[in-house]
Amino acid sequence: MPRPLGNTSLQILGAIRHPQAYGLELVTRTGLPSGTIYPTLGRLKKRGLIRARWEDQRVAEREGRPRRRYYELTEDGALALATGASRVADLAADLQAESVGGAG
C-alpha cells in the first residue's frame, strides 16, 4: 500500500488541479517556498501522481518569454488527492466533534 500523502503534497496537488499550473503559480497559490515546491513536484512526478508538460513554444514566443513547464494531475494523482482530502476532512470532523463534546 502506498504511503499516505503529507500535507505539503496534498496542498500542491490541490493547487495543481485547476487544471494545471507552473511552478510560480504553485508558489503563489500555496504560499510554500520554491525550495519546497520543486523537490515535492519531483517526488510526486516519480510516484506518477502528476505529469509535466512543456508549453507550446509558439505560445511562449508570441508572448515574448521563455516557455513554461506545466504540471497536471494524473488519474492516480486525482484519486490520491481525493483520498487525502477525505482523510483530512475526517480528521477535521473528529476534532470538531471532540471540541463540541468537550465544550458541552
Binding site: 508558489v27 503563489t28 517556498p33 520554491s34 525550495g35 519546497t36 520543486y38 519531483g42
Partner: peptide, 14 residues
Amino acid sequence: LPSPMGYAFGAFAH
C-alpha cells in the same frame, strides 16, 4: 510574490 533572490535559492534545494 517572493523576491527573485529568495526564489532562486529554491533552485539549490531542487
